[in-house]
């Protein structure tokens, strides 16, 4: 189990919001991670659109490492599922976010902030199935 971290989580969330505002102000785009990533998979290849997406993902990967170097503290990353389940989960997340046009960031943060009805419904749905899946895996199947 993990501990309740209201202040760090609120501050981290505010930085995620700042990122979304920065991307809209600078590039005029919504900060949806699944959309930004899936946009890189275009086979037809819109080259001018590719650079900022790659740069965003590079920033996303480099930032936690840089933070670790500065603070000298490695962030906790603990897995609750073995590799085969992670592979299955990854595939479902990738498929689902493209089909549903967004994930926690695009729908859950940016969409809700814009009061988009699609995003409000999508967030309610993925929260519900996420909670239900966790209940099934960690209580029904685990017998706890």
């Amino acid at each position: 189990m993990t501990h309740f971290t209201p202040f760090a989580s609120l501050f981290g969330g505010a930085l995620i919001g700042l990122s979304a505002v920065a991307l809209l102000l600078l590039n005029g785009r919504i900060a949806g991670i699944s959309g930004i990533t899936a946009g890189l998979l275009s086979l037809s290849g819109q080259a001018p659109d590719r650079g900022w997406r790659i740069a965003f993902v590079i920033g996303l990967v480099v930032a936690p490492l840089t933070l670790m170097l500065i603070s000298g503290e490695r962030p906790g990353i603990d897995f609750i599922a073995p590799l085969p389940i992670m592979l299955l989960a990854g595939f479902i997340v990738g498929f689902g976010t493209v089909l549903g046009n967004g994930c926690t960031s695009g729908h859950g943060v940016c969409g809700i902030a814009r009061l988009s009805p699609r995003s409000i419904i999508a967030t309610a749905v993925f929260m519900t199935t996420g909670i239900a899946t966790t209940y099934v895996v960690h209580h029904l199947l685990a017998g706890g």
């Binding site: 989580s9 600078l26 650079g51 790659i54 965003f56 920033g59």
Partner: peptide
Amino acid sequence: RILGGLIAGLLFGVGLSISGMINPAKVIG
């Protein structure tokens, strides 16, 4: 535009790290 993407990506990554959301166990929690 590439700089715009990089700045937003860095901010997002720091936010995920500080918030604890980078930890799958915390998400399941």
